[in-house]
Design a protein around this nucleic acid. Sequence first.
DNA 1: ACCCCTATTGCATCTGGCGCATCAATATGC
DNA 2: GCATATTGATGCGCCAGATGCAATAGGGGT
Lengths: 277, 277
Amino acid sequence: MVTDEHPSSLRRALSLLDALASDDAVAHGGWGVSRLAAHLGRDQSQVSRTLRVFADAGFVERDRESMAYRIGWHVFALAARAADQRLLAAGAPILRRLVEKDLGERIHLSVLQGSEVLTLLTQAPPHIIQTVAWAGRLVPAHNTSSGRALLIDREREDLQRLFAGVVFGAGGPNAPRDVEELYERVLIARRSGYAIVDEEFEPGLVAAAAPVRDFRGGVVAALNVSAPKFRLWGRLPLAGQAIKSAADELSERLGWDGTRPRNLAAGPSAARSEVPA
Amino acid sequence: MVTDEHPSSLRRALSLLDALASDDAVAHGGWGVSRLAAHLGRDQSQVSRTLRVFADAGFVERDRESMAYRIGWHVFALAARAADQRLLAAGAPILRRLVEKDLGERIHLSVLQGSEVLTLLTQAPPHIIQTVAWAGRLVPAHNTSSGRALLIDREREDLQRLFAGVVFGAGGPNAPRDVEELYERVLIARRSGYAIVDEEFEPGLVAAAAPVRDFRGGVVAALNVSAPKFRLWGRLPLAGQAIKSAADELSERLGWDGTRPRNLAAGPSAARSEVPA
DNA sequence: ACCCCTATTGCATCTGGCGCATCAATATGC
DNA sequence: GCATATTGATGCGCCAGATGCAATAGGGGT
């Protein structure tokens, strides 16, 4: 997640936090120094010292018996102050309503981070067991409906800049092959106000998404539904409409007056950050 | 927040995040470089450079127009991915303390799954014979205190959708007969901050429960105590209070900022800068 | 006792964080 | 219009502090 461009000790230190939040580390109830050092290819001494600083600052905590480090209270406290809590507060009930009343499939609220999509909230229908926890996870923006919705205002040059260095290979059979194809599909989404994706991210998976705007008119988030093709495909246009009206409602709660955004070259912090390895 | 003991560049860098998470900074929609530098008594050059590293890693974000930095979504992602882990890790000692010091009765930590309650952790007092292993068990949400606590934020329509198709028949003598009754009792629980249940799930069984919230502000789990009526009834309000304060403590460890109002759906442009200087 | 695995610490090396000064860009004043 | 103030970024020399190696210490397991 933290991609190195110019090595700095700070960046190296931050990668420790990423490692501690990895699936592996979480599943193991935290990682010890040596394991962490091995995973990152760094010397144990440095990992040990860096973790001590993090621990003193509360960014990580150590299990007394297993000696394993975990993400600490301070990160959670900061997360509570992370960008726009209002989006979460207003979004949660809308997600619930969508999944329970309208669609009966899994709904996500996500934001753009670089060329990837970060899932903030997930709501699954009651009868489905939560297989993977999607919240906090990153997926590519170019072959997902959320990504398409988040990029719905962007022009060709924006996309070229944003996806410079991103490989378009992976994903489902219908994934866009390059920025040009992506832009064409963005244009299609722009016309209807929502994005439809058919087996672009994963074979057999279809999805619909719509952009959420704040009071400035810019896209700040996306609402999306995704499900197996056999279950959702027939009502996907309807689902798109439902998602769109829900997204518009959320936008209104964020102060959007319904006007189109003026040309805002690129998103908030889109400039930097690349794809992870 | 980050207390300095032995200065290190990492610690200095982390204090930038703290500053950005301060009430002042959040209220102003983020802070610029010079302001941040002044606040921390550090040179602008270093603040600028450090923030770039943070920004590249996604730990902070920059507003395009105001040039102000805010806590970034990456921090949110870290917290989201470690949230489950932390719920269990931070919950266990609190359960133990509750049963040993405060209540002397069986305590559970549970989450909502559809219209049912899934118990994750159980702590029983030593003198009580382990009757049933509750961890992993599913019980209905409508006639249990945990369920009531987990649904404490829901509105009538939410409940109607959630319990559509659920039969309310079974349980104890005082179980709610329909969604309407359930909602009334949810409202009562909402007022006090904890839920009391008197022979709703099972004859002769009473219980109290309180909601646990995470850094997103939503209810993610519930803490509850249950025992035979003859043993707990007299001190049930006290038990409710104890459960509530324990739940609040757990919420804090999950990054919940109890001081912050969690449903601020009204103001359109609250996040933006209002105060001049 | 042994070995193996893990975490911490001492120490010499030298990277990279630091402050100062400068520069560019954008307001604000007259 | 020019002058001034403010804010953020950068070039550069210096030394704090990050790094890596090796040694040390603890903890099981056999």
